[in-house]
Design a protein around this nucleic acid. Structure first.
Ligand SMILES: [Zn+2]
Length: 620
DNA sequence: CGGCTTTGACCGGCGC
DNA sequence: GCGCCGGTCAAAGCCG
């Protein structure tokens, strides 16, 4: 199978990057308005640079945002294989970033190996590759130094022309200086790395806190809502809530829903509690009884392996009947991506291991089951299946949140998933929100396009479907009643598009998220970036947004067409959002539907872009 | 040799 | 209670 390995090259300003990475969330809303100006040259520049796409988005977070490496993706295309070595080299040269990137790469590379930091080697490579076209000072300097340093002969070569001892000395001294600098950078790199890790951990911790707080608040809400819901279905609303929370936690962490471990002994054994996150869950979720039944066997299992560990215990401890439901919902919250691809599966930047295959009943094409192997306990699973009617369409369904850092490429999907979860969650918040949101979108977007985004209640669990195929397939329609449509005029067609593909989901997710926000919160126009402030909503939202935003931004930057489309979509959303807010007619309906909120978003892409996706992602 | 895929068996839920 | 079905497990084999 294709493995995705994310190799990231991060610009020299790691810190800012990292910080942005985690901090970014707040800006999302703002971003939209900005995005309207997609055309904005700034973006393009950024895109080309591959740096800080975010900047353009929001003035607030200037340089720091994550750079979603659209380019990285492109880079990947160039690559043939995944070898680690290749990663380092390839990543560097391909983009403008090459420059200092060297060190930064390691961050994400973590898993595999960042052999020492052969800075010297890398730098040399850079020089060779680039020939110093970039013209960035850093590159040039470093490279020169290194080269000279390494081989005396080289120096001699250079020196010959000059032929003065003084010069030699000078050169040597310079070299020495440069070397020293390199060393210093190395150290700094390490330091940054540590910082990153620290930030990460802090971030996680904060998230957990958030979740806990949110939960507390929720509990209040629940009590209130619960009553209401009971009338309808008792459980549904909560589930969403939980999802949201979970999802929130999930950005970095999983959704850990604890199911009861009860029966799954076998599975569990395998997936030991690697994750620290369990704690999160503790705070976040409480289930009392193992099975409340709603979840199918499969569901249980899923939970248990990745998430269950700690959570399970916790769940037992806390008796809350509805919790189960929540859990189920969470589990069930899924993001389905429809894309045209001849490949067995689309590359999403993650590493997947196939653990099963089945012939689903209504489909002659087998369904493949994958689990994320980027981290030991990662609960994320995905199902890949070809559309029965149109076998060129590959339907990939993601479930759960990663409990580990992701390469940018993977972030897109991950964020999308989480966004979807949030959205669902938000829906739960204001009972109908999810639906409302969809309606929102529909109304807003419909005019624009031919492409569909549909929401259907039919699905057993809340699902957000992103249709990246050009045609709104009849297939979907039957399953899911289309309630609203999203127009995406142009879809990227290149391999590079793969990134775009990945991004789309995020974008959608964001859009959804925003909607949810709008509808649920009835956000004021301000759209304050501070999500934290909005505790009412699940904490999870905050993070994912940022990610998705970043991804979206990157994507936009990368592909003009796409950008335009997005811009249109965003604009419409934004514009429509307010209007929609007013329209809450749906609410009544939604309440019922809460249990399953399915949203389908279709995008018109040219066919075949998917193919590339596999190789294209940096991760691979 | 480790990791991944393949594939039949197994499990639990659900409907009849 | 039985069978169907989706989902997962895990032994066996493959691959680099
Ligand atoms: Zn994962």
């Amino acid at each position: 199978m294709a493995k995705g390995r994310g190799v990231l090259s991060i610009d020299s300003d790691l810190i800012s990057t990292t910080s942005a990475f985690f901090l970014h969330n707040p800006t999302v809303l703002n971003s939209f308005p900005d995005q309207e100006n997609i055309v904005n040259p700034k973006w393009k520049q950024l895109a080309t640079t591959g740096r800080q796409t975010m900047d353009a988005t929001s003035a607030r977070s200037p340089p720091t945002t994550i750079q979603f490496p659209v380019k990285l993706i492109n880079t990947n295309d160039a690559r043939d294989d995944d070898d680690d070595e290749d990663d380092d080299d390839s990543s560097l040269p391909s983009d403008n970033r090459r420059r200092t990137v060297i060190d930064e790469m390691d961050f994400f590379a973590r898993k595999k190996h960042h052999d020492g930091y052969p800075i010297t080697n890398d730098s040399t490579d850079d020089l060779k590759d680039s020939g110093s076209p970039a013209g960035l000072e850093l590159n040039v300097n470093t490279g020169l130094n290194l080269l000279t340093t390494n081989t005396s002969s080289d120096q001699s070569m250079v020196d010959d022309g000059i032929s003065s001892n003084m010069e030699d000395k000078r050169a040597k001294s310079e070299v020495a200086v440069l070397q020293a600098e390199v060393e210093r950078m190395k150290v700094e790199n390490l330091r940054l790395k540590d910082m990153l890790n620290q930030v990460n951990s802090n971030y996680n911790a904060l998230q957990m806190h958030l979740v806990t707080l949110t939960r507390d608040q929720k509990s209040h809400h629940k009590n209130k809502q619960h009553d209401d819901k009971i009338k309808n279905n008792g459980m549904v609303p909560r589930q969403f809530m939980d999802l949201g929370l979970v999802a929130a936690a999930g950005d970095t962490d999983d959704l850990s829903l604890s199911t009861s471990e009860g029966g799954r002994s076998r599975d569990r054994s395998r997936s030991p509690g690697n994750n620290v996150e369990n704690t999160n869950e503790d705070g976040a979720l409480v289930f009392d009884q193992d099975k409340k039944g709603f979840a199918r066997g499969a569901d249980h299992r899923e939970d248990s392996p990745g998430q269950g560990w700690a959570s399970n215990k916790v769940a037992r401890l806390n008796p809350a009947k509805t919790i189960d439901q929540t859990e189920a919902t969470i589990r069930k919250a899924r993001v389905s991506v429809r894309a045209r691809s001849e490949d067995a599966m689309i590359s999403d930047g993650c590493q997947w291991r196939k653990y099963g295959q089945k012939l689903a009943k209504g489909n002659p094409c087998p369904r493949a089951y994958y689990r994320c192997t980027m981290a030991a306990g990662c609960p994320v699973r995905k199902q890949v299946q070809r559309c029965a009617e149109d076998r060129t369409i590959l339907i990939t369904t993601y479930e759960g949140n990663h409990n580990h850092p992701l390469p940018p490429a993977a972030m897109a999907m991950a964020s999308t998933t989480s966004s979807a979860a949030r959205m669902l969650l938000s829906g739960s918040m204001s009972s109908a929100d999810g639906l409302l949101n969809s309606n929102f979108l529909t109304r807003t977007l419909l005019p624009c396009s031919s492409n569909l985004a549909t929401i259907s209640a039919s699905a057993p669990f809340p699902t957000v479907t992103l249709d990246l195929t050009q045609n709104p397939n009849p297939l979907q329609l039957p399953k899911q009643p289309t309630q609203f449509q999203f127009p995406f005029p142009n879809a990227p067609q290149d391999p590079a598009n793969a990134s775009a593909t990945a991004l789309l989901p995020q974008i959608f997710g964001q859009a959804l998220y925003n909607q949810s926000k709008f509808s649920g919160l009835q956000m004021s126009q301000d759209m304050e970036p501070n999500r934290l402030g909005q505790q009412s909503q699940p904490a999870s939202q905050q993070n994912p947004l940022a990610d998705s935003l970043a991804a979206a931004t990157a994507a936009i930057a990368a592909d003009p067409n796409f950008t335009a489309a997005l811009a249109a979509a965003i604009t419409s959303i934004i514009g429509g959002a307010h209007q929609n807010n007013i329209n809450s007619t749906n609410n009544a309906q939604t309440t019922t539907s809460n249990s399953n909120g399915n949203i389908t978003i279709s995008n018109s892409n040219s066919n075949g872009h998917n193919k590339t996706s596999n190789s294209s992602f940096p991760g691979n």
